Amino acid sequence: MKTEAMVIRETGGPEVLKRETIEIAEPGPRQVLVRVKAVALNHIDVWVRRGLPHVKYDFPHRFGSDIAGEVEALGPGATGCTVGQKVVISPGVSCGVCAKCLAGRDNLCQKYNILGETTQGGYAQHVVVPDANILPYPGDLPFTDAAAIPLAFLTAWQMVVECAQVAPGDTVLVQAAGSGVSTAAIQIAKLYGARVIGTAGSDEKLERARALGMDIGINYSTTDFVPEVRKITEKRGVDAVIEHVGGDVFVKSILATRWGGCVVTCGATMGHSPTIDLRHIFFRQVRVLGSTMGSKGVLQRIMPFFSQGKLRPVVDRVLPLWSAVEAHRVLEERKAFGKVVLAVD
């Protein structure tokens, strides 16, 4: 079948995104055809667009990990949803039969793919996904809000809850508090009873982060966050750092952590080759944990928090899908607080 999409046929700047009519396959066994209503951006879209050595591009390539829409057709044997149902799509695709998948840890599957990265995504009017990736719709949220949930909240939940094991009374430092993952991490850390310190590059972003529950803000463009954190914590340091910035921020995050605390990282937007003094890790027994996404089961458990009002997606702006070039520029220039979402007509 044919559908309209925003695609790339080469890597490069935002201008390589083009509107095209493309052919997509009908849903096969245990697959679902979804009419896309909204798709949210992630930094992974930018990285893949610029070019990544581990990605084998199947041009025309479509970005888009975070998708909300309506079921339009079911492939043979597909279960768990009905035609016309409003759905959100889980962004991780795995084999479903290996030991990790069967143990509910599908994000550790050796055949794990992320929609829009190593497989085709949702920058289109239609997308075909496995029925295992269909999630219940979160209450009466608009599609543009629902699309802002999956990747950011799944990633943040694994970092805060599964990796850092944040508990009541902990102090958590969330870096780059205006990003999608960080706005989710602030809310989840507060849900678990932590005190949250956040960093951002502007006072405006810090004010918006406070509205999400952040207790203390540090403007990293005017203040060195390491001595400030030590002052706030009476020289103790924080129990956990949630970060995806990399570079010098990752190095300094280790210094801001207490003895026996942890730094959890899920990205490297500002550099993937930091120079680390290992003495600050082994002598102070700081744990450094890597995190990618989370399991489908975790995302299933998260979704009810949105219909209950305990968590909420943070949308900076909504643009038409056909304005994806502009949306990518907004993300690259770090002008957004929360998610940039594309509405699909």
Results as ranks from 00 to 15, higher is better:
residue 4 E to I: 08
residue 6 M to S: 05
residue 9 R to T: 15
residue 9 R to K: 15
residue 9 R to N: 15
residue 13 G to Y: 13
residue 16 V to A: 07
residue 24 I to L: 07
residue 28 G to V: 06
residue 30 R to T: 07
residue 38 A to F: 01
residue 40 A to C: 03
residue 44 I to K: 07
residue 45 D to T: 05
residue 45 D to W: 06
residue 46 V to C: 05
residue 50 R to W: 06
residue 51 G to M: 06
residue 56 K to M: 08
residue 59 F to I: 14
residue 59 F to M: 13
residue 64 G to T: 03
residue 65 S to C: 08
residue 66 D to V: 09
residue 69 G to T: 00
residue 76 P to H: 07
residue 78 A to E: 06
residue 82 T to S: 11
residue 90 S to P: 01
residue 91 P to L: 06
residue 94 S to F: 10
residue 97 V to N: 07
residue 100 K to H: 12
residue 100 K to G: 02
residue 108 L to T: 06
residue 114 I to S: 08
residue 119 T to H: 01
residue 119 T to C: 09
residue 122 G to N: 13
residue 123 Y to D: 00
residue 123 Y to F: 15
residue 129 V to L: 12
residue 129 V to N: 12
residue 131 D to P: 12
residue 141 L to P: 00
residue 142 P to K: 01
residue 146 A to C: 14
residue 158 Q to W: 06
residue 158 Q to T: 06
residue 162 E to P: 04
residue 165 Q to C: 11
residue 166 V to F: 10
residue 174 V to M: 14
residue 177 A to D: 04
residue 179 S to Y: 12
residue 181 V to R: 00
residue 183 T to P: 11
residue 185 A to R: 00
residue 185 A to L: 02
residue 185 A to I: 05
residue 187 Q to N: 05
residue 190 K to Y: 08
residue 191 L to N: 03
residue 191 L to R: 10
residue 191 L to Q: 11
residue 193 G to I: 07
residue 193 G to V: 08
residue 194 A to D: 05
residue 211 A to F: 03
residue 212 L to A: 01
residue 213 G to C: 08
residue 219 N to V: 10
residue 220 Y to W: 13
residue 221 S to H: 14
residue 226 V to D: 12
residue 229 V to M: 08
residue 230 R to G: 03
residue 231 K to F: 02
residue 232 I to K: 02
residue 232 I to D: 08
residue 236 R to H: 14
residue 239 D to W: 05
residue 239 D to F: 05
residue 249 V to P: 00
residue 250 F to L: 15
residue 253 S to C: 04
residue 255 L to R: 14
residue 259 W to D: 10
residue 265 T to R: 02
residue 268 A to D: 12
residue 275 T to A: 15
residue 277 D to I: 14
residue 277 D to Q: 15
residue 278 L to M: 09
residue 279 R to T: 14
residue 281 I to T: 13
residue 283 F to N: 05
residue 289 L to N: 11
residue 293 M to S: 11
residue 300 Q to V: 11
residue 305 F to H: 14
residue 310 K to H: 10
residue 312 R to E: 15
residue 314 V to N: 07
residue 316 D to A: 00
residue 316 D to V: 01
residue 322 W to Q: 04
residue 324 A to L: 09
residue 327 A to W: 00
residue 327 A to Y: 00
residue 328 H to L: 07
residue 331 L to D: 00
residue 331 L to A: 01
residue 343 A to D: 13
